[in-house]
Simulated scan of single mutants.
Amino acid sequence: MAKVLVLYHSTYGHIEAMAEAVAEGARSAGATVDIRRVPETVPEELARKSGYKLDQKAPLAKVEDLPGYDAIIVGAGTRFGRMPSQMAAFWDRAGGLWATGALNGKVGGAFASTATQHGGNEMTLMSIIHNLMHFGLTIVGLDYGYQGQMGVDEIRGGAPYGATTVTDGDGSRMPSKAELDGARYQGRRIAEVAGKLAVRTPEYAG
């Protein structure tokens, strides 16, 4: 049975909702799943004034816990077409894991959000994926087995690189059923692949 980490940063709650759906999908494949969020780097006073969702229940992640997982699924909103600084800062602290190859062979994936359909969803996914590949993770995206990413009858997130949602400029649009279903599908696929590969060296076994 695979052990999966859903690691996210969510400013207004959209990615938090997607993380829950990713976790549901992974659990449906029999995986043990932890949901963790990276530390917020924006000062609390400014975050409150800006309307950040500060009551998120997921515990804070620790870099030293990463090797204990078979799969790490990373989610974040876009920041000018790339992952936000909060998520980048967390991975920048993981240099020791990179140096020792502690994450080599584990399974990874990405999910994201943007304000508009063309606001950088795919670029943000790829910025996360590029980072994970440097740490040696094998990437699983949102394959076209999930047909809910197809069609133009409604606003739809989703790309072959990972599940996404579109929030609107004021953040008023929460993830749709199709977008949450895509997140569940990707979570399940990643857990399935991780269960088959399950590369965990003895010195880093959790």
Rank of each mutant, 00 (worst) to 15 (best):
T165I: 08
K106P: 05
P59C: 07
F90G: 00
V38Y: 11
D70E: 14
G141M: 06
D70Y: 05
G75Y: 03
I72S: 00
R82S: 15
V33D: 02
A94D: 04
K49L: 13
G158W: 03
A88S: 13
V38I: 09
Q117L: 12
L46P: 00
V38D: 07
Q117A: 14
G109I: 02
L66A: 08
G136M: 02
E45Q: 12
G162M: 04
S113I: 09
V38M: 08
Y144Q: 09
E154C: 06
P175S: 09
G158Q: 04
G162L: 03
N121T: 11
A110Q: 05
E44C: 00
T32Y: 07
G145H: 10
H130C: 13
Q147S: 13
G68Y: 02
D153V: 00
A102P: 00
I128E: 07
V63L: 06
G148K: 04
N121R: 12
G171S: 07
Q86M: 00
T32N: 09
K177H: 11
F80E: 04
P84D: 04
R173Y: 08
D170W: 08
Q149F: 03
Y52T: 08
V42R: 15
K53H: 11
R156Y: 06
L46A: 12
T124N: 11
D55I: 11
K177N: 10
R37D: 00
N104K: 14
V33M: 03
L46K: 12
D55M: 08
Y52K: 14
F111H: 01
G171P: 06
I139M: 15
G169W: 10
E44T: 12
F135L: 14
D153I: 02
A159H: 11
K106I: 05
G75P: 05
L125Q: 03
K57D: 15
L125I: 07
R156S: 03
L97R: 09
D70C: 07
A89R: 13
L103H: 08
P39S: 01
A115E: 09
L132C: 06
V33F: 06
S176L: 10
T41A: 03
N131D: 06
M83F: 12
G136K: 05
I155E: 07
G169V: 14
K177L: 12
T41H: 11
H118T: 14
R48P: 02
G157S: 03
R82W: 01
T116S: 15
Q56V: 02
H130K: 12
S172K: 15
A102R: 04
G105L: 07
T100D: 11
V140R: 05
P84R: 01
V140S: 07
I73D: 00
D65C: 02
V107C: 06
G120R: 13
